[in-house]
Design a protein around this nucleic acid. Structure first.
Lengths: 206, 206
DNA sequence: TCATCACGTTAACGCTCGCTAACATCCGGG
DNA sequence: CCCGGATGTTAGCGAGCGTTAACGTGATGA
């Protein structure tokens, strides 16, 4: 009665390959035949699993936005204090950025290819995720103004999401080293908020 | 004899609108008719100025890569010391990110839509720009290893390029405040390159 | 005056692509 | 044994898009 097992594995296989291809060549740059070929079936066979190409992108983007948000909320709830919450948020985001590289790429690249309702949903999830970060960062750096913190959070997202832009070439740090590096860079960037007052002006201390 | 005046203004108008549209909806998501309409002519009239749609993208990407590189080199050459050079690099990149928002977006989004030769050229210019940064950052933070610095530079690019991802909504800092904020965030992130061994386990070995 | 050139126009071609239609195959349960 | 559903296949339609062709038109200058 419930065919979720095998059917979902097929669906998920398609989604995984579609995410990779979309991230590599863009949503419009990939044809359904290519996606089909990537999972061993060809072209229109995909329509047994998805209503259309748009539906795949929608499911991918809604999925990752939701997972980022729920994981973030869970980590914050489990944290002992604000600093630990921020640590956990950063660590979680890095895991996403490194392990789900194609999805992160899609997430801030192809959002506007969605139907209005889906795009609204994704935007709402994204916004909640940002607010989760903003609340935590404001507790750790109470001197900074809200709009500066929000901009800083976006900037840190850009920093953490930079891994997809780096080629896989040999001269780069491995996963563990890279994760630790990004973690420290993010914390260092946010530490710079302590010198700012609520108007964004540099508070002169020297 | 030299028709650069009016011809170039038309060409540049087309390039500006094409950059905006490409950044908004992606290279494949914009039709030549739309680009033409954006400058008041329609469709194939563009072919009086460009060999094709690809040529517009190529000129945009080669142009911005080259301008970033030459501006960076000039700023470094004029700087009094490493710290001032880093300051100037950051300031210059922020100017690009804020003022040429569509181009920055294109720059790390549509690179693979180029012909092989153009893509190679853009990649080479990008790499030289990165190396310019790496050399300066290594002087300011000599304790960090080269591959970590390179990854950190990419991460800082992600941070500085985050402005395009932020909506134009009202609750955000204005240009001046935003530029100052990004500047401090970038410096703060790079400061984290010092004292990396405080966590013990991942000091440079390569 | 009139050839020339810069700069546009519209019509149409050819190709790609998303998607549907119609048909095949396997497979579990009455 | 056979019905029916799940899951593919290939053929083909229809729309959109980049590009070319053929033509118009107004300014320029010998």
């Amino acid at each position: 009665m419930n065919p979720t097992k095998t059917a979902d594995s097929r669906r998920e296989q398609i989604l995984r390959e579609a995410a990779r291809l979309f991230a590599e060549r863009g949503f419009h740059g990939v044809g359904v035949d290519e996606i089909g070929a990537a999972v061993g079936i060809s072209g229109p066979g995909l329509y047994r699993h998805f209503a259309g190409k748009d539906a795949m992108l929608a499911e991918l983007l809604v999925g990752i936005s939701g997972r980022l948000l729920t994981a973030g909320k869970m980590r914050v709830a489990e944290a002992a204090g604000p600093a630990e919450a921020l640590d956990a948020l950063i660590r979680g985001h890095i895991d996403f950025a490194i392990d789900d590289r194609p999805l992160i790429t899609l997430h801030d690249r192809e959002l506007d290819r969605l139907r209005d309702s889906d795009r609204k949903l994704v935007r709402q999830l994204q916004r909640q995720y940002v607010e989760e970060w903003v609340a935590v960062v404001r507790q750790v750096h109470p001197a900074a103004g809200e709009s500066e913190v929000r901009a800083a959070v976006h900037a840190v997202f850009g920093l953490l999401n930079s891994t997809p832009h780096i080629g896989e070439r040999g001269g780069l740090p491995g996963r563990t080293v890279m994760a630790a590096l990004l973690h420290r860079l993010a914390l260092g960037a946010l530490d710079a908020l302590d010198g700012l007052d609520s108007t964004g002006n540099w508070r002169v201390t020297y």
